[in-house]
Design a binder for these strands. Sequence first.
DNA 1: GTAAAACCTCGACTTAACTTGAGGTCAAGA
DNA 2: TCTTGACCTCAAGTTAAGTCGAGGTTTTAC
Lengths: 158, 158
Amino acid sequence: MGKTKVAGPDPIHRLLSVGEVAARSGVAVSALHFYEAKGLIQSTRNAGNQRRYARGMLRRIAVIKAAQHVGIPLASIHAAFEALPARRTPDAGDWKRLSAAWRAELDGRIERLVRLRDQLQDCIGCGCLSMAACPLRNPHDRLAQQGSGPRLLDPDPA
Amino acid sequence: MGKTKVAGPDPIHRLLSVGEVAARSGVAVSALHFYEAKGLIQSTRNAGNQRRYARGMLRRIAVIKAAQHVGIPLASIHAAFEALPARRTPDAGDWKRLSAAWRAELDGRIERLVRLRDQLQDCIGCGCLSMAACPLRNPHDRLAQQGSGPRLLDPDPA
DNA sequence: GTAAAACCTCGACTTAACTTGAGGTCAAGA
DNA sequence: TCTTGACCTCAAGTTAAGTCGAGGTTTTAC
């Protein structure tokens, strides 16, 4: 990827082309198209039907990336964005609420992962999956009762 | 799913059919076929070309499920299994080594997730992605240098 | 001995999150 | 003006981890 030309010191209100947004956000042009199709970002069009982005979109994209990075699926990000003010640019308070919600989700996920880690060690490491204490154990005398087999470890509340 | 018939108290060396394994492991028959195609499990065939599993395969499947549950992809599970003794049944020590390796991986993942959670809060929550201290910030003066954009947060070492 | 249940293979479909390519248009510099 | 390079749309491909169905065989139970 060569560098996208940037025409000098941009006036603060200049709209950005899709290539510029891609370069600055580190997201591929195709991904931006994709996000737009999914309703995660918006753009206006110029006379020649090319996308033009307001600078604020960069923050939105940064938030998308951050959320993705911690494993939040696009669908959830989309849902969270729906809760943001309709068309006015979200302010500090808006973003703060968003991050608090995700923080809670992450706390839960971390906690779950810690539990799983410990169980994994007990279960695989014990060398005997037939021990009564082992959650991994699948007792011969208790076959799949619910059609979904033994719920090893814990069910994913996602 | 109706219950699969089990012909009384099975002799300990009887081989299991795919349906029995499915019922006991809680894994669908189609998934067992899939795992076999991927080389994660093995079976022999009877005269009529039907799969027959040694009892030990149940443990292997339990380990697959446990690993999957903590987010380890099948490809990695497969790789880990390659390190197990070729055709002899893995013993306690073998499984112990495996779980230790995964434990380490999980420790890393948890640690990373904790860091990300804290950064997420600082970055999104701060209400100003342009602050110098914010890792999410994408400075105007430092455009994507390596063709992959700013490495927000931290790269995934998986 | 026959019917139902379980099994077989193979190909197509599913979701997520994109990428790649084809075929065509728009914009900017020499 | 002309030629790139950036952009457009839309369709199809990709990976993971399976599921589902069709069409056909084997086993089991009565």
